[in-house]
Amino acid sequence: MKIAFIINDHDTEKPSYTTPGLGYAAYKREHEVFFIGVGELAYTSGGHMSARCKSISGKSYDAQETYFQAVQKEEFQRINSKDLDVLFLRNNPADEINDREWAQNAAFVFGEIAERDGVLVLNHPSSLAGAVNKMYFQHFPEILRPKTVITRDHKEIEDFFKQQKQKMILKPLQGSGGTNVFMMDKNNVHNLSQTIDAISRDGYVIAQEYLPDATGGDTRLFLMNGEPLQSDGKYAMLQRVNAEGDIRSNVHAGGTTEGKKITDQILELAEIVRPKLVQDGMFLVGIDIVGDKLMEINVFSPGGLNMMGKMYEVDFATEVIKSIEKKVNYKKMYPDYLFNSRLATL
């Protein structure tokens, strides 16, 4: 099959990231693999998606890092949506805030064009467009979520702070990687107004209940087709531990990782989110868990799959590619019968 991955930019995509790992897994299974930066997408006069992309073939590599480094050295070539079987949207719109606002929605728009050409688009582009900020999370059952208000109004946030006994988390509605995440309590209440102002410059502010279990970090679990991703009986999950003195467990923010065993509580949380993810065509997502609550659902470019594979000495990326192969076969068996949103999570 011919599979293309949309990334933010070739210059910022690191060879150790999850998307190059998925591409490497597909390459090892002798598929044609292409990488497209958001800025390299185009619309043709014939009504198709086209793109400048990078690809490599005919060579053997012993690791995803050496594979992707070789890809990055290749010259650009052009591909058309008519030539593709699969388009995997793996760019993160939050990384484009401030610098490239035009790039935030581009992948969804071009993904819908590719979908019209019969390309299998993952995750489902229309659903991704509706999940471009953390408001998507609020559509899941309340039992899963910490108490939350989303507003730009200082008084609402101050009232919520009092209701939470002067301890809460503030973060932007749109963002990732632990950027602009603050824990507010009685010790720094004098900075509350200033902190709200800083976050609200880029949009809405999320004020969220503080969970004491967060001091131990959070658990990242991958879900594929709405189910916990497994390989050889191992679950694609890890514990992200906060750096000392930091409330953020994101690896980009200095957090560390360690192995984590599955529990009935984690499986129950995953089961509660499954119906909506399946309905929305969210093929591969990462959920972040603290205690008995879900902190976030990453539907764009959840990372850490490569770290999990090394940690448990299994190949999660290949399981993802095998699932995509099945979808391509289903599409061939049932032409014009299966909608993209349904096929995405079959």
Rank of each mutant, 00 (worst) to 15 (best):
S323H: 14
K326A: 13
L277C: 09
Q163P: 02
I79V: 14
Y312E: 09
N242T: 09
K332W: 05
Y204R: 11
S57P: 00
T195Y: 15
G175F: 01
Y210C: 05
D117F: 01
Q230C: 07
K134N: 06
Q174E: 14
R52Y: 02
E296G: 10
L84F: 07
M295I: 07
S249G: 05
I196N: 02
S193L: 15
F300S: 14
Q230D: 10
Q279K: 13
Y330W: 14
I7E: 00
Q174H: 14
K54D: 07
E325T: 15
I199T: 05
T18I: 12
E209G: 06
N98I: 11
A63P: 02
I143A: 13
S231Y: 09
G46Q: 12
E101A: 09
R201L: 13
Y27D: 06
D153H: 12
E258D: 12
V189T: 14
G254C: 06
G23F: 00
E258P: 00
V38K: 05
P141G: 11
G46N: 12
S57I: 11
G309I: 01
Y330F: 15
L305S: 04
R100A: 06
V278Q: 10
E268S: 15
H190R: 11
N105W: 09
A42H: 04
A214E: 02
V109N: 07
P125M: 09
A94H: 04
T179D: 10
I169Y: 04
V320E: 04
S127G: 07
D95Y: 08
N329Q: 15
Q104D: 07
I272M: 12
K276Y: 07
P146E: 08
V109D: 06
Y330S: 09
V149Y: 12
L211K: 08
I7R: 00
D336V: 12
M237Y: 01
T257M: 10
K147G: 05
S60T: 14
G37Q: 02
S57Y: 14
K59A: 15
L294S: 06
L343Y: 04
I289A: 02
E13P: 00
D280V: 10
N180T: 14
T257H: 01
K165F: 11
S81K: 01
W102E: 10
E296P: 09
V71C: 14
G226K: 04
D213W: 00
K2P: 01
I262P: 02
D336G: 05
